[in-house]
């Protein structure tokens, strides 16, 4: 391995420039994630970090992983973060100056410093004795790029972990559905709404309408001023339960009252 212990300046200029640019992107994004008071700004800084990491993958001939990084992380996971932030309306500013726990920051800094020293000494500085290379397949300069090598190894050497990830994803989907499902015994109001709507239409549309009612209660900004989509209008007009009158009346008010009414519905 000729290039392992060389300095940075031994690299060619394009490689050095690419490393510096991607490192600056990664670190600036990470600072933005942990120092932003607004969670939306944190999520957008996370996008910057993820693009920097994708650049680092590209610089090390991991083309497929870089593409998956952009698609899955920046395309799906960050959107999921942003969706939850906006859905819950938690995008208010957090006070980062006040720390309720007394020694939390000092202890955190101490632990971080300890872990950095440990990782630098053991992981970066030490010369590990390693066995034979290429137990699965060589990664560099393959015919067909790393996509072919990765696909071959995933479906041969790593077939069992690959199948396990299928089970993991199914379990994650089921877990998300179970966790975020509205409990049917939440209160009499929910039952009344379901009963009246069940009398009006079939069973499945009533369920969908009560889900929409949940979304209205949780995300008051979307319903501010009654600017809902045309899909919401018929369900709102068919809603005849007496418990819904206050949230319906609040729709005509200004957004502040809408937010309060939504929070009361949640409680």
């Amino acid at each position: 391995m000729p290039g392992i212990h060389g300095p940075l300046m031994a690299a060619t200029y394009p490689d050095a420039i690419m490393f510096v640019v991607s490192a600056v992107l990664v670190l600036a994004g990470a600072i933005g994630v942990i120092a932003s008071r607004n969670p939306v700004h944190s999520a957008l800084s996370l996008v910057m970090t993820l693009f920097g990491v994708a650049l680092i993958f590209l610089a090390q001939q991991a083309d497929f992983i870089a593409a998956v990084q952009v698609i899955v992380y920046a395309g799906a996971i960050v959107v999921l973060f942003l969706f939850v932030v906006m859905f819950l309306g938690v995008d208010r500013l957090e006070n980062l100056v006040v720390e309720p726990l007394r020694f939390q920051r000092v202890l955190a800094l101490g632990l971080v410093a300890l872990s950095v020293v440990g990782m630098l000494l053991l992981g970066v500085g030490a010369h590990w004795a390693i066995g034979a290379h290429s137990v699965t397949a060589p990664a560099l300069n393959q015919p067909g790029g790393d996509v072919a090598a990765l696909g071959k190894s995933v479906f041969t050497a790593y077939l069992l972990p690959f199948e396990a990830t299928a089970a993991l994803l199914i379990i994650a989907i089921i877990g998300a559905v179970v966790l975020t499902r509205r409990q049917p015994a939440a209160g009499e109001e929910g039952d009344a709404v379901e009963d009246t709507q069940g009398a009006g239409g079939g069973g499945a549309p009533a369920q969908e309408r009560s889900n929409q009612a949940d979304a209205d209660g949780v995300d008051p900004d979307g319903a501010a001023g009654g600017q809902g989509s045309p899909r919401e209008a018929p369900s709102r007009s068919s809603r005849g339960a007496p418990g819904e009158t206050d949230s319906r009346a609040a729709e005509d008010g200004e957004p502040g009252t809408v937010r309060r009414a939504g929070e009361e519905v949640l409680r």
Partner: peptide, 28 residues
């Protein structure tokens, strides 16, 4: 890259899957 072994990239692939599942359950 340094060991010229595709296994590291396989591990990254699985980490991506686990990260997606973790975010879904955590946000739920």
């Amino acid at each position: 890259r340094s060991l010229n072994d595709i296994g590291g990239q396989d591990a990254v692939f699985f980490v991506l899957v686990v990260a997606a599942a973790e975010v879904v359950v955590g946000l739920g």
